[in-house]
Amino acid sequence: MSRPIVATLKLSALRNNLQVVRQAAPHSRVWSVVKANAYGHGLERIWSSLGETDGFAMLNLEEAILLRERGWKGPILMLEGFFHADELPLFDQYRLTTSLHSNWQVKALANAKLKAPLDVYLKMNSGMNRLGFSPERVHSIWQQLRAIANVGQLTLMAHFADAEQPDGITEPMKRIEQATEGIDCPRSLSNSAATLWHPEAHFDWVRPGIVLYGASPTGQWCDVATSGLQPVMSLQSEIIGVQNLKSGDTVGYGSRYRAQVEQRIGIVACGYADGYPRHAPDGTPVRVNGVLTHTVGAISMDMMTVDLTPCPQAGIGSPVELWGNEVKIDDVAHAAGTIGYELMCALAPRVPVVTQS
């Protein structure tokens, strides 16, 4: 019999969350962002549940080819474009939309021998200072691309660093408007936060990521609690042991936790080798038998310990929700000083995954 830990993916929640995006941006088309193996959910497991999207956006060429081989015929946007010029024949074969953010990519595309032009997303650096051409260069690059036979439809793309803030897109939008004055083109600017909270930035295509999986772009579930979003992934396990502590007894490596009174604790089959954050402090929320409680002691590779005081009926075999419908992944991540994105992506390969339609 295998360990009792399992991750469950609720596919109906994906469909629901896509509809929440459409309601938030009713006049835009939607790129469903499925990078990082669909934020740890498994692209092959979930893509068909997002089949009503207008397009998929990702990073890895292998994942784009997988979607084509599974039957997706709609647009696929490669968010970082091609990494080597010799990938362009595959972009051509599989009809992928490429972003362009560097001079060498422009030259490589111009020199490539393609069967048909590729649609292009011109990436502008609007202040995040990762990828993209500076605002001062957007006009000249735009004109250069219009003269290249291998370039099909041109779209302007940018990204926001602070869209979760009420005024977080004000300055970037000024840069974008100034840089594109006189350019009439489709635009794709909005990430999850801008999709939810900045309709003035929706334009032609929005690019939601984390909200599709039912977590908050801010890392705080309270910010999306009334949005209609539903968690897709839940991580569940069971109590596999119980200890009765006396006052002064310690728990786990480093003896970090010390009982102040007599206390009953449960040992859960889940640890950092499963993807649970090792640095989660005492007090990180969990549910045992449907009752909210919390962790005590350091997270081990394969086990963690939880306080059973609020749930005295719990014992070996009692179900534990590490995160999911009741314990929000954002709340676990916040307690551990990280974000829900990281916990999703960190789910370990050894954890069995089941899907629910």
Rank of each mutant, 00 (worst) to 15 (best):
V224Y: 07
G241Q: 10
S237E: 10
F203T: 00
G241E: 12
V224Q: 06
A193S: 13
V211G: 00
A193D: 04
S237V: 10
L212Y: 08
Q220M: 09
I210D: 02
G219V: 09
A215D: 07
L196P: 06
P231L: 12
I239C: 13
F203C: 01
T218H: 09
I239G: 13
I240W: 11
V242C: 13
L235A: 09
E238V: 07
T195Y: 00
P199R: 12
A193K: 06
S216T: 11
A194R: 06
A215W: 08
H202R: 06
Q220W: 11
A225S: 15
S247D: 02
G219E: 09
I239N: 12
V206P: 01
N244K: 14
M233V: 14
W197Q: 04
T226E: 15
V224L: 08
G241W: 09
P217N: 09
S234K: 10
S247P: 05
V206K: 04
K246N: 11
A225Y: 12
C222W: 11
W221R: 04
Q243M: 09
A201N: 10
W205P: 00
V211T: 14
K246T: 09
I240H: 10
F203W: 12
P208A: 01
E238T: 11
V232T: 05
P217Q: 09
I240Q: 11
D223R: 12
A194P: 12
C222R: 15
I240R: 13
N191P: 03
G219W: 07
P217S: 09
L196K: 06
E200N: 11
S190F: 03
S234Q: 15
V232M: 07
W221Q: 03
N244C: 08
V211A: 01
K246C: 05
V232W: 04
P217V: 08
P199S: 12
L235M: 15
L235I: 11
F203Q: 08
V224F: 08
S247W: 03
S192W: 07
K246S: 11
I239Y: 13
Q220A: 11
V206M: 03
L189N: 08
Q230Y: 03
S247C: 06
V242K: 13
G228W: 13
Y213E: 01
S237Y: 11
G209H: 03
L212T: 07
